[in-house]
Design a protein around this nucleic acid. Structure first.
Lengths: 204, 204, 204, 204
DNA sequence: CATGAATGAGTATTCATTCAT
DNA sequence: TATGAATGAATACTCATTCAT
């Protein structure tokens, strides 16, 4: 009995995870308004009512998902990268490589990024856009850019704008991966070039 | 009577244009599912019924809009640019300049581009994505890229992929213009860098 | 000027008549709820607004029409027939003949009868059904039936019920005329037989 | 689970039947255009949405109902009657009696007949009016009439026209039953007289 | 005065949410 | 607890009525 209670809790948690997980992709593909609960539940393979056993409303589910999109791990990685005693060019290469790998292998990475973009476009206050994770991700990227500009390997210009440019392209290719059938990623070099001065060696 | 009949036709055409024009922006901002006819008609400043006097359904209106998004002018310009006896680098600079100017001044340019992107993501055959205008735009851009690669001013790589990369970023900044309050465009140099090898002089 | 005023009045009256006349048939065919003003006006060959220049509302038009359905002439004829010094059998024959002729030749007779029937079926008080004209028509018909029953030529039974039976069949064939493409009327004998005892000679 | 699935199917079928059944009467009373889904659902005692869980549209529901109006049982009965080794007069009496009884006791009989009439009047091809059931019902009735004419008990005249006449009156009294508050049926003799020569004994 | 485009109240239909099983 | 049928508020669409021309 006591064990079953725990087990029960576990099962609940599992189902909740499942819903959250599957919904992320579905919402990312169809948007909030374009997602019908009936379709979503069919997609997940559960009854419509089940969703409401775990979430109060479609909106709560969506919010929960977007909350989930946490870049903790990403931020942590990036932070460490920032502090490494290597050239900015090298850091940018590492970062880009890591992003492209995730985009390639982690299906949810694209959904995560896409939803994040969607949120920005919802009728929420645009001011509050700079949620923590984002500002952190940006902060560290900007730091690297600044370092690179000093070192002469990164193009000149406002580092925040360049940061935004760089990440926007990551968003863009997340969208592409999510929506286009025969997705073909850009190369690491192409993405790097957003920031790096194009030495002859890069593409030679 | 005969004159008034013509005039009547004219007025009808004007209203149709008005609806089409205003709806484009609204749909671009809110998406198809996210657009309510009641809101849209209020936004346009007409009665709900009026919309149905010109279009059979919300869907038809949307389709009509997307059909409207024609890049004829853009394609024509680009075609002429392609054939000019100047360096690819110069052509790319001209093209980029022209795009940025449109993005800055023509509100509908962003909507056009955004809707086009949305269309790509609808549940249509992804195969048929390469609608004419697009393929034309791509065709000429690719030509310039090829020229540039020969001339040594453009980065190496598959010219179609590079073309897609370049235009994708135009889409991206159209989205940004449409949806973000304090939109700040990238610089011409930033966009050029997608294609051009970065000579030291560019950003110095 | 004074003449033009009269003429104007005349023209107005003509148009009103036209609308009333054409609408009768249209309403008879489609019912009140099934009639759209847009369709009706197209059918009449005038603008929608014109109808509202003569009638306050769709309902007023309909009411005006039903008011118009006056059986004055019919009642007068029947009254005279009733008082004629001839056998009931003869009277019934004459009446039946007259009805069949009208049904055959007067297009509006069928519409008139049909609308009258429709009115009975509307959510009006069923009690008030016995509008004057009707009660008059019924009164005189019943009188003839009574006479016939005394004379032995008419079937036995409640004379009101028989009256209703007889006229109902007139309604029925009005409907048929109005709605069926290849309308074929019943014969005078068939209708008479509702009331008359069938002498061998009748159909021999 | 397996049992519950069957049961579920059963329940679905029941609801569908219920909607179909109740709607028949409502449509018969109010016509297609005159029937609002909101009113209908209130009348049935279900939510508006429920109707759409079983039928795609108001029109489909209406069509389904009219399809439902099957006279199979009636046709079967009549067919058997036709083949009985008795006089046509007797057959007509039996048929008439049976009809009057149904009209009296089966509320849906009137609705069935009324809707059938309404269908005839819809903008369908009038040529295709002779749907199977009807032609069967007519075929057998005509047969009896023919027999009666040979036997001398039935009035002369085209048997199809007489058949139509006879059934039209059944329609008529179905309408009356459905729509008039104090419905009073005609007598069996009155209906028989449409076909039978009036022997003195009949009404004596 | 006649018109038909524009309007918005009214009606059909959809879909988030509830609830009996 | 999971389900999916039922619900009705929200939304798409229609049509009687108005009004500028």
């Amino acid at each position: 009995m006591p064990k079953s209670k725990e087990r029960c809790q576990e099962i609940r948690e599992e189902m909740r995870e499942k819903i959250l997980h599957e919904s992320m992709l579905f919402f990312a593909r169809n948007g909030f308004a374009g997602t019908k609960i009936s379709d979503l539940s069919k997609y997940i393979g559960i009854g419509q009512g089940t969703i409401y056993a775990y979430f109060q409303s479609k909106e709560e589910l969506f919010n929960e998902i977007t909350k989930r999109i946490n870049y903790e791990q990403d931020v942590k990685e990036l932070k460490m990268l920032t502090m490494l005693p290597i050239t900015a060019k090298h850091k940018i290469h590492k970062l880009t490589e890591s992003i492209m790998k995730k985009l390639e292998n982690d299906e949810n990475y694209a959904a995560k990024v896409t939803l994040n973009t969607q949120m920005l476009f919802e009728e929420k206050e645009y001011a509050s856009v700079d949620t923590t994770y984002r500002s952190d991700l940006y902060k560290y990227t900007a730091k690297i850019i600044k370092q690179g500009q000093k070192e002469g390997s990164v193009v000149l210009g406002n580092e925040i704008k360049l940061t935004d440019y760089y990440w926007s392209i990551v968003y863009l290719y997340s969208l592409k991966k999510l929506f286009t059938a025969q997705y073909e990623s850009i190369s690491i070099q192409d993405l790097e070039r957003i920031l790096l001065k194009d030495g002859i060696k890069n593409n030679a």
